[in-house]
Structure formats: structure tokens, C-alpha cells
């Protein structure tokens, strides 16, 4: 609900999303995706959706990054694109 804050976070989101998709190292991509989730969490807290922000902080940035890293640990770390 504060537009300046909103604007800055939204501008950050696009490069972070592109970098998460473009990195060849999947472990790094998973970590950048965690950063993306944290930015989303900030954005939702700023827009007044505190419950959603809390859920995203616990789920998106914590647990889903751990799941991805567990999978990458058991498969391959490098991707072709």
C-alpha cells in the first residue's frame, strides 16, 4: 500500500526471476528462487496480506528451497540451459 516500496520490489522481481531461470548451476538457481520467494514475501507484507506473507516466508523461502536442494543433491547439479 506504499507505492514507492511496491515499485522497487516489483522492479527487483523481474531480473531475479530471469536469473533463476537462466543459471546453469541448478543449486544456484534454487537459491535465487529462494531470494525470489523472499521478495514476494516482502511484497505481500507491504500490500497488507500478512498471513500470505508469513506463509510464503515459511513455505516458499524455507521448505520448498530445501526440497529442491534435496532433489538436486540426488540427481544432477548442472543443466544444459
Amino acid at each position: 500500500m506504499i507505492f514507492a516500496f511496491d515499485f522497487i520490489i516489483l522492479l527487483f522481481l523481474i531480473p531475479v526471476a530471469i536469473v533463476a531461470l537462466q543459471l546453469k548451476d541448478l543449486l544456484a538457481a534454487a537459491m535465487v528462487f529462494g531470494i525470489y520467494s523472499f521478495l514476494m514475501c516482502l511484497l505481500w507484507a507491504e500490500m497488507g496480506a500478512v498471513d500470505v506473507a508469513f506463509t510464503e516466508a515459511a513455505v516458499g523461502a524455507g521448505v520448498s528451497a530445501v526440497f529442491m536442494i534435496a532433489t538436486i543433491f540426488n540427481t544432477k547439479r548442472n543443466s544444459s540451459d
Partner: peptide, 16 residues
Amino acid sequence: PGGGFQGGVIMGASFI
């Protein structure tokens, strides 16, 4: 803010 889903995820994260 909080509730069953968030508390459950935090509790699960402690076991993780």
C-alpha cells in the same frame, strides 16, 4: 498472522 499451515510448516522445518 499465523495459524495451522504456518505453524505446521515451522514445526516440520524444525524436524528437517
